[in-house]
Design a protein around this nucleic acid. Structure first.
Lengths: 281, 281
DNA sequence: TAATAAATGTCGTTT
DNA sequence: AAACGACGTTTATTA
């Protein structure tokens, strides 16, 4: 056990020495556990100037001055500095960063008797973020290559909007009248009339519609059937019908229109592009 | 050079072996560069179950399914997993995470031929975040201790609100009438009457008030003096008066009330606590 | 550049 | 549990 520990320390020291001499080939990243503040200072400066992604973990205090002021007393946190000039200070809890600076920030790194200062400031906005580390447990300078495409498919709300701007997504001749109409149990997604002027109630689900969804639509139907003897159609819109929903739908005399959130997203995108094209011609 | 590289590799391997055997004493954190997926899997599982903070950097794809759906194609990112069950996926650019999961998420980590899967899900919200790493450049399991207090001092808006809910912050007997009133050049922060029913215009600054602030208040005064012969008081509220402002203030017959954003923040906090107390009694 | 609307907004407080 | 408002909101879109 003792020898293992000793061996480990020897390895760690050699590792550190070689790292400091930059003798490790072809890595493109720097990772140092418990670096000295001097080591960290050099690496951070170098990393920021070369537009790398820098991670610092350790004991720090944080001061912010801008639209408001804030002071965060010492504790162990993670600082994430990105090549685009954004900074995030994360405590070991909570989703939002406790302090931050948006992209475009400028940096000044310095050493003092207090510790390692990293200052991120935006001149125009007159905002300054100051992080002072007095102990660093982890330093990482990473060279992240990320060109992956990001696709966000529509939420239920977006599906609703897609049908409103392109009613033929539901069926030819459909005309929306209102949306988000409050009724007894909740909100009807869309109310409109079909090509034959028949009142049509639309319930939208972005996932395979279950029996619950069918019942929900039926409730809305009941609310309308009660105060009117007019014929009313009910259409359930969803990417697909879950098992069991088909039979219930048929029993209640309701209809189903398959529509995927992806499709809606595409239609909305095309509409936006079209309106942009129209604007320029 | 060759020997240095070789030596480095030997150190790295020994380091890894000793790490795997958990023979390193008294560190409380695990940091591995370019771990195997198996190593990473074990460490991540262990780290999450023991409520540590986990950082993973490397090539991954991300899928989200919940209120919306999203797909992020492969690229190098940083995953931050916190002890409170929050997850953040950060690309090497942008302030907001490209994907995330709020606190309270549950985790399932697994290995497949695709790579290392980390799934963060919230059952109640029916939201699932899936991150799949096929290559990991850095793994860190940190034991962050953070009990530091965070103080956010009020913004100007908050100072306004503090005076509105606790008018005696300005002076005894003050009664606010309107806030954010639009006038010719902009908005008057607060209009009210003092204990003698004299119309009072209040301009708030969260920083030492400069001559500009005095002039701004004077403009508002003029706007009111023009259509009324009533006596009107003008009070500048700020933590202090900047050099030069004192004389101008006296010349124009305006007044100054020192008030710090900190003080306002305290008052607001106490008010909130009080309303909470009232609720329970 | 300023104003407006959307967000997987999140995060509180209040009803 | 749902509703309402605030946020150092941030972000993108549009005039």
């Amino acid at each position: 056990m003792f020898y293992a520990s000793l061996l480990f320390d020897v390895c760690t020291i050699l590792y550190g020495v070689l790292r400091a001499l930059e003798l490790r080939p072809g890595i493109g990243q720097i990772v140092i556990e418990r670096p000295t503040l001097e080591e960290a200072s050099r690496a951070v400066k170098n990393g920021i100037s070369r537009h790398k992604t820098v991670i610092l973990a350790g004991n720090c205090r944080v001061d912010y001055e801008g639209r408001a002021s804030s002071k965060l007393e010492p504790g162990e946190r993670i600082a994430l500095i990105k090549p685009d000039g954004s900074v995030l200070i994360h405590r070991p809890r909570d989703y939002p960063p406790v302090n931050w600076q948006p992209p475009g920030s400028l940096f000044r790194t310095s050493l003092s008797e207090d510790g390692l200062h990293v200052r991120a400031f935006r001149k125009k906005e007159r905002e300054v973020l100051d992080v002072t580390f007095n102990e660093i447990s982890l330093l990482a300078v990473l060279d992240l290559k990320d060109a992956g495409d990001f696709y966000l498919y529509a939420s239920e709300k977006d599906m609703q909007e897609a049908i409103l701007v392109e009613p033929s997504l539901l069926e030819a001749g459909f005309k929306p009248i209102t949306s988000e109409r409050p009724v007894d149990p909740g909100f009807i997604d869309i109310i409109g009339v079909d090509r034959d002027n028949v009142l049509t109630i639309v319930e939208i689900k972005r996932k395979p519609a279950t029996k619950d969804a069918v019942l929900q639509l039926q409730k809305y139907m009941d609310a309308y059937a009660s105060d009117s003897s007019r014929k009313v159609r009910g259409i359930l819109v969803a990417p697909e019908l879950a098992r069991g929903a088909q039979k219930m739908l048929a029993t209640l005399g309701l209809e189903f229109k398959p529509l995927s959130p992806q499709r809606c997203a595409e239609v909305l995108k095309r509409k936006r592009e079209k309106s942009l094209t129209d604007f320029f011609k």
